[in-house]
Simulated assay, not measured.
Amino acid sequence: MRGPNATSRLHREALQFRVILAATYPLFLAAAISQRLLPGRGPDRPALGARRSVFGEARAMAVSAIPFAFMG
């Protein structure tokens, strides 16, 4: 059972996550755009039809990288 301290901690962590996401999203957006501009397609880059939008790619990169800030 969660007490009031655990609930407030979860709210603080959620707020921190959103703040870090907002702060780092422009960097990941720039990275996603630069990946699109690079010529060629590597094995880890899907074909044109299977791609997400640049904004979706940037959000996916940010959401997958940010949890490392909360480890430790």
Rank of each mutant, 00 (worst) to 15 (best):
M1H: 14
R2A: 11
G3I: 08
G3C: 00
G3E: 01
G3R: 02
A6P: 01
A6G: 14
T7H: 04
T7Q: 12
T7G: 07
T7W: 09
S8C: 11
L10Y: 04
L10E: 08
H11N: 11
R12K: 12
E13K: 05
E13F: 05
A14P: 00
Q16Y: 05
Q16D: 11
I20E: 05
I20P: 04
I20C: 11
A22G: 09
A23V: 14
T24H: 02
T24L: 13
Y25V: 04
P26G: 09
F28K: 02
F28D: 06
F28C: 02
F28H: 03
L29F: 03
A30Q: 13
A30N: 06
S34N: 04
S34G: 09
Q35G: 03
G42T: 09
P43R: 15
D44E: 08
R51Y: 09
R52Q: 11
S53C: 06
S53K: 07
V54N: 01
F55I: 15
F55C: 11
G56T: 10
G56I: 08
E57Q: 15
A60I: 02
A60C: 05
M61R: 14
M61N: 10
A62M: 01
S64D: 14
S64P: 06
S64W: 07
S64Q: 12
A65L: 11
I66R: 01
P67T: 00
F68R: 09
A69P: 02
M71H: 13
M71N: 12
M71W: 05
